[in-house]
Design a protein around this nucleic acid. Structure first.
Lengths: 218, 218, 218, 218
DNA sequence: GATGAATGAGCGTTCATTCAT
DNA sequence: GATGAATGAACGCTCATTCAT
């Protein structure tokens, strides 16, 4: 998987036939979009930061919005790739005896992906409210495909009695919002606090599994 | 409390000495800021939607940003008001025997506030990444004041053995992100889905209290 | 003359039936027009400085330009008044045996008037290039009336052999530009330098009378 | 010197790497600034007159004020250039036996320069009261540098007994205001009058040299 | 393929002026 | 007579996009 992962992660920076200038443009755009938002970033600023002429941007990307999508779309694709690849799914279903193990694997894998690509993740969640195309892509890929796969997994663990009876979508919602809540708090809202990452992830997993109630009280 | 609450909620729309035109401007701005974002909303658009001349906006708000802050700041103030009012806090500490009761009360009260003011909530979370002034106010009011009060409450219930041993800030983070995760999914991301609100809130409270693991597995 | 003078000078501030508010408006306008120029001074700024509502300005002066003219026109009138009053002229023609005496009297009188009303003088010379109405008034009053009177005076002293043969208009031009050159240098261009006013005026009069030619030529 | 002079005068219109559009912008701006003043001239008007898009102005000059300075600064530089060039100064000190010759040379040279660049001169003296940057440049270049050189020259002729004993700065002030008085009257205030330029310059020189007093009358 | 000058629509903001109170 | 909210045209300036070189 790590092999696979590496390949996927390096997709962006080495594949897709991006020219040297294009890479600079994309890097500059990511930096500025993440920092100031798409709407508040001017193409001239991107050009300056990338060290290219303003026209060069429009040679590669017909419009500013196309540049945004060219940045965020592959990131979404890479994020979901591991879920989509059949082998990976099979592994999932058989390798993890317990839901907790599955959860840890997800966090190990996908959360680290997001952390590694934090500026892109930031752009994604910052711009999704404003860009219908982005929202569309997001819903199509994440909602429609991934959630279905998750549903099957959740039902699998529910059948095993490891997850309480509850509509799978609610399970997903609760799990996902807890995990994303950690990433957002940790890396976007309060990055300056002192975080014991391992401990905090442990607490997060424990919370998803057991909630806030101590064992004895039940 | 509901008396108090009502008064507070109606602050914005009826008090503050807003003239008729000002109210129209604010309403138009809320609508557009929520829909397209602050940066992508032009003052001329706001003026048109409000049915006033563009100059009128600037008579009441020196800059476009001042208009944004004039919209969002009172909303934050009203959101935290119940936590700040001492009586309310006292009530909190004595009236709710169980953390779960406290949690339900909070959801009953503050979540409904947010739902009622969803466009304002939307603007707040959409613009916080881009507006340092907003972030500053948010941190000052929410982070520094509310979180401290929450910490005391959490420690109170921890002392009672109703919450597991865990840094209070982690308890808060997990609780808050679960609750906000519900609001965002329900009202912003997937409002078009069919939601059984009461059931879903029940599941969310249950999740915070007990996690996903069934009672017997422990 | 000093009686007359006083009356004239106080015209502006006490007569003309200016209400209290009007006086404040005029004072504020003079201050701002002198400092930043007519075009760069906003009526709202004047209103604020005068402590009146913006509408009040337009109740008394139909337009901003009318306010300017209402300020500068009486100043021109007062400047030329002594020349126009017949008695004064008679006095001129008979009292001053020598051109030099006449010159000193003029400086004593009219230059002091300008110094006393420096902000108004400043506005006048700053705005004359841009305000045709002002230029018109200036030409009509100063050029057409005063210059004629001066011409007669110059010819009078030329007949007496006290002024060299030269077109009177040239004599006037040279005299006036020397005197105005002093005022402008002294009060507008380099007011911060240390000036020995009496000496400098003496040199100016001497220059006009004898020029830069050393004694030998006399 | 005439070679040198020509080069300098043509600097502005042919050198400096001004593009065709820039030249049109500058020409249009000079025309409008001179006619209506900087503050009363809009950039859209300049663009229209220059036959370019309004954005083009701001591509070449970051702000409207920068355009003003880009117009006036080189003019000041060119005006003082001959005084600064050492050879010229040397010539001055040795070639002109008499102060009068020096004066004629200055008028021949620098006054003709101003006449040739009258719109620029007009802008300079019209805007100096309102533009601190302009005033600063003016003082730094003209006041601090040129006046010093003039002082030396004046003292030189005073030592020769050709100029009466008087503080050199006063000599400069009187001379300069007389010369400028001529230019302003001739070209700005009353250009429509019939002027016999040669005669009038002769009278001006004569006035400066000998004053209004006939030699024999004293 | 890359450039950057040129564009003109649109931006946030200011302005002199009006008018109901 | 005085007010100040309201106006909308005009302002200086920025922007994404085009295109000749």
């Amino acid at each position: 998987m790590s092999e696979q992962e590496k390949l996927i992660d390096e997709w962006f920076h080495q594949e897709e036939g991006l020219t040297e200038k294009q890479k600079k443009i994309v890097a500059a755009a990511i930096e500025s979009f993440a920092a100031k938002g798409y709407a508040a970033t001017s193409t001239s600023e991107i050009a300056k930061k990338a060290g290219v002429a303003e026209g060069t941007i429009f040679r590669h990307y017909k419009t500013k919005k196309e540049l945004l999508l060219a940045i965020v779309a592959p990131m979404m694709a890479k994020f979901i790739a591991p879920f989509v690849i059949n082998d990976f799914n099979k592994v999932l279903n058989h390798d993890f005896e317990r839901f907790e193990d599955f959860l840890r694997a997800i966090i190990e894998n996908r959360v680290k992906f997001l952390i590694k690509n934090m500026p892109l993740f930031r752009i994604l969640i910052q711009e999704i409210p404003f860009q219908p195309e982005l929202r569309e892509q997001f819903k199509e890929h994440i909602a429609n495909k991934i959630i279905e796969r998750f549903r099957i997994i959740v039902e699998h663990y529910q059948a095993k009695g490891q997850i309480i009876e509850m509509p799978p979508y609610s399970v997903i919602r609760l799990t996902v919002s807890t995990v994303f809540g950690f990433i957002i708090a940790r890396y976007l809202l309060i990055p300056e606090a002192q975080w014991d990452d391992e401990e905090e992830i442990e607490r997060t997993v424990h919370f998803i599994m057991h909630g806030l109630t101590p064992p004895r009280s039940q």
